[in-house]
């Protein structure tokens, strides 16, 4: 197997995730896109780990999974609060930072 086939798969997943983060209006959908990005990173880590024979890649993939769990927990809590305050999770309406 080529190393590149895994890396390219990761690149595609990453780009799709970036598109989702930018283009989705729904808070939950944005969080899902972020999961795509994190998975792309994990595939890269594991592929390099197999390539170099270094276990560190797998260990860091595990850390990424743990952090993703934390991120989803906090992220969904925030989405929930936004929903409670505005009765909507449309991110286009969240524009308090407008100048």
């Amino acid at each position: 197997m080529l190393l590149n086939q895994f890396l390219l798969l990761g690149a595609v997943l990453f780009s799709v995730g970036v598109y989702g983060v930018i283009a989705r209006r729904n808070g939950v959908a944005v969080l899902m896109s972020i999961e795509l990005i994190l998975n792309a990173v994990n595939i890269n880590l594991i592929a390099f780990s197999a390539m170099d024979g270094a276990i560190a890649g797998q260990v860091f993939a595990l850390f990424v999974i743990a952090i993703a769990a934390a991120e989803v927990g906090v992220g969904l809590a925030i989405v929930l609060v936004i929903y409670r305050n505005r009765r909507s999770i449309d991110l286009d309406e969240v524009d308090l930072m407008r100048g």
Partner: peptide
């Protein structure tokens, strides 16, 4: 229909370039 923003082209462009 509101799940995606109306102006999604920018995101698509960035994603394609990135890819």
């Amino acid at each position: 229909a509101q799940l995606t923003r109306t102006r999604w082209f920018g995101g698509a462009l960035v994603a394609v370039l990135l890819c």
